[in-house]
Each structure stands twice: as structure tokens, then as C-alpha cells.
Design a protein around this nucleic acid. Structure first.
Lengths: 220, 220
DNA sequence: ACCTGAACACCGTTCAAGT
DNA sequence: ACCTGAACACCGTTCAAGT
């Protein structure tokens, strides 16, 4: 019966997944839990803490996946572990689009978040990144990763179809030579972007960034 | 008098800067403009479009700064232009903390946003990044940059003071060897982080990433 | 201890009515 | 064309009251 709180979080998660974050109101969560809105407060404190709880709960889904990775880590290269974690995180975010932007407002300091961060730490250490640089590089990599999926699910990355007004504006600006970069790249700015391939290519670049950080460190 | 819309956006901007994004309600904006809430609708369409308008307007503040940079670009290295843009953007975001997360939900396709993107395009081309790779690398860099400032103003990056419960949990996990990475890095995880210096170091890494992307391209 | 009902001070938006 | 007033269907949260 101490799991009243879990029931509430389950209801909130389900609501967010089904109808988006803005459908998660105290009133709606309460109704789904079969209780009065006010009955939520002793359990979750406030709406802000409810959102924290949802995030915390979601991150537990990410941990089993990479716990397995860590277990098989004896022979595993740090590269494959980091890539697997990146893909697991992106997949999780696609399944719960409400979570991505929320991640920018909370330090990753819950037990499960720390476990994920720890996995990145050990990978970076294995890669040879100097210990003094590891926390920064971890933040760099995870900032990129959260930002990428936030862009995908949030609407910053849209494949192709701009609204006609925006498209005409861009075309006009290019014609007027106000945008020389766009003009030079016209051939490569054709709409459909393969976001899976882009994520992969970005990971390649980040792996190289990590290797360079490792080399910089050992040379001093 | 066609500037009714601008008056409304001014009021919304001022409200967001002074009391945060959640203080920007149609009712509050209307009151500040000296008009009925319903009078806003013909001008801005809806609340979502009001937020779009605010963002669009904010980006015009970024453009003059780098227009100057582009003008002095004859002798300027792409590195100094990119760094200056990064700093201008970070400073702008610190002055308007409500804007950062909003950026993840809109394609950068307004005239002023395109001008900023164009500056990055020309810098990357000058750096020697293959044209086919430039749009992707631009998105990688700007995703990192928006993510960094969103983390700063949103609360993901907090210097030091965790709440006691969280801190105890972390310490316990480290003791229990559940977090080997944290344990190995203990010395480097002491609280006060210099976020200015971290941003600088990240920019160094990204410059190297760009140089590597340029070298990869020319070698094939 | 845990829950309820009513209330307070808000939201965004529709719609008919005024000028 | 532009604005208003009233209304609808919501919010998060406080507080006194019930068991």
C-alpha cells in the first residue's frame, strides 16, 4: 500500500505517453488513479515534483539495458558501449517524447541517472580521457545527446515540409544574396534528411572528439 | 499603427524577462498592452504563435552583432567568427532565460534565424568541411550550443548545492561500489564548476571536431 | 493518517454583440 | 475592421471538514 505513489506515477506516465505532457494535470492524473485531486498532494508534493518523479521513473527503463552492457564489458570496446547507450537513450526518448525537454531542467543526480552517467565516465576513462577532463566531456556528450532527441521530438528538426510562407522567405533571401552560405549549399539543403544516419555520423564525430581529448591528455 | 503586433510582442518579451515564461498569459499580455485579451487574437493568432513571435523577435538581437562580424570577415579567421557567435548567443540566452528551451521546438527558418545559420555555414565552408557535411555539422554545433545554455538556465547544470537527500544517495552508491566511475573521479567531481571555462573548453573541442571533419573530407 | 468538497485565483479560446 | 463582455471548459493549490 506504500505503492500509492507508484500508482500515481504510472497514471501520469500513461497520460503523458498517450496524450502528451500538457494532458498531465493534477486533476486528470487523479481521475485516472481513481481519487480526488487533493489526495495526490501528500504523495507527490506538487506538480513540479510529480514531473520529477516521472523522469526518475523513466530513467529506470534505461538502466537495465546498459547494466547488461556493463556486464559484458570485459571484452567490449568503450566505443560500442557508448554507442549502445546513445541508441538506447534515443529510442527511449522517441517512446516518451515529453521527457526530452524536461531533462534540461534537472541535474542527473537520481540513483538511476547517476548509473547512466557512471557508464559514460567509465567509457571515457577507458578511452584514455584524462580524469580531470572526464566530467566535462561527459556533459558535452550528454548535452549533445539530449539536445538531439529534444530537437527531433520537439519539432526543431523537421524533415522537408516548411510552411509555404517560410519557404518563400528563404528562397527570396537566397536570391537576394543575403544568405551566401545557403546559396553555396543549395544542392545539400534539399529536404529529406535521414535522422538515423545523421545521428550515426554525429556519433562518429563525437568518438573522434573523445579520441582527440585522450591524445591531448597523454601528450602533456 | 500596423505596429500593434510589435507592441504586443514588446509586452510579452518584457513580461517573460521580468517574471518568467509562465507569467506570459494572454490575459497578462493584454493588460500590459492596455487592451482586452480577445483583442490579441487578430494580431498574433494564438498563444503558440505569440511564443513564435517572441523568439523571432529575440533572434533579431543576435543578428546585428554578427553582421558586424561578417563585415570584418575579410581578415577574420572562421574560428574567431564562430567563437564570437557562440558567445553572443550564450549571452543573449542568459539575458532571456525563457528562450532556450523554446528553441528546441521550432525550425530555425525565420529570416533572422537563417542569417545566423548562414554565418555558421560560411564558417564551416571556410574551415574546409565538405559541402555535403556542412548542414549536418551546423546542426551538431548548434544542438550542442542550445543544449548548453538550456542546461545552464534550465537547471540541469547546478553548481554544487545538491539537496541533501540526493547527495547522501550518491555518496552511499559510491561507497557501495555501484558507481565505479564516480569513485575513480571523486577528486574531479568536487562541486564548483566554472561554466564559462567549461564552455570555452567545449568550444576548443568543437573547433577540433570541425578541423577533423575538414581533414576527413579532403582526404577522400 | 488519509481523503473529500468547496472555494480561490487563475488559464486559452469561442462567440455574439457592439462601434 | 477592430474591440468588448460574457461564457465555457479548464488549471494548481489552500483550507476546513469529515472518517
Amino acid at each position: 500500500m506504500a505503492d500509492r505513489r507508484q500508482e500515481i506515477l504510472d497514471a501520469a506516465l500513461a497520460l503523458a505517453d498517450e496524450r502528451g505532457l500538457e494532458a498531465v494535470s493534477m486533476r486528470a492524473v487523479a481521475e485516472r488513479t481513481g481519487v480526488t485531486p487533493m489526495a495526490l498532494y501528500p504523495q507527490v508534493g506538487s506538480k513540479a515534483e510529480l514531473l520529477d518523479g516521472m523522469l526518475e521513473r523513466l530513467l529506470t527503463e534505461l538502466v537495465p539495458a546498459d547494466a547488461a552492457l556493463a556486464a559484458g564489458a570485459d571484452g567490449q570496446d568503450w566505443r560500442v558501449r557508448l554507442r549502445a547507450l546513445a541508441h538506447a537513450f534515443r529510442k527511449l526518448a522517441h517512446g516518451h517524447p515529453w521527457a526530452a525537454t524536461l531533462l534540461f531542467s534537472r541535474p542527473s543526480v537520481t540513483p538511476d541517472a547517476a548509473r547512466v552517467v557512471d557508464l559514460v565516465y567509465t567509457s571515457l576513462l577507458e578511452a584514455g580521457v584524462p580524469a580531470s577532463e572526464v566530467p566535462r566531456v561527459e556533459r558535452l556528450v550528454s548535452t549533445y545527446m539530449i539536445g538531439y532527441v529534444a530537437s527531433e521530438v520537439g519539432g526543431r528538426f523537421v524533415s522537408g515540409e516548411l510552411n509555404p510562407r517560410a519557404r518563400r522567405g528563404l528562397v527570396a533571401a537566397v536570391r537576394a544574396k543575403a544568405l551566401p552560405g545557403h546559396a553555396a549549399l543549395a544542392r545539400w539543403l534539399e529536404p529529406p534528411v535521414d535522422w538515423d544516419a545523421e545521428f550515426e555520423a554525429d556519433l562518429d564525430d563525437l568518438m573522434r572528439l573523445i579520441e582527440t581529448a585522450a591524445a591531448q591528455g597523454s601528450q602533456t
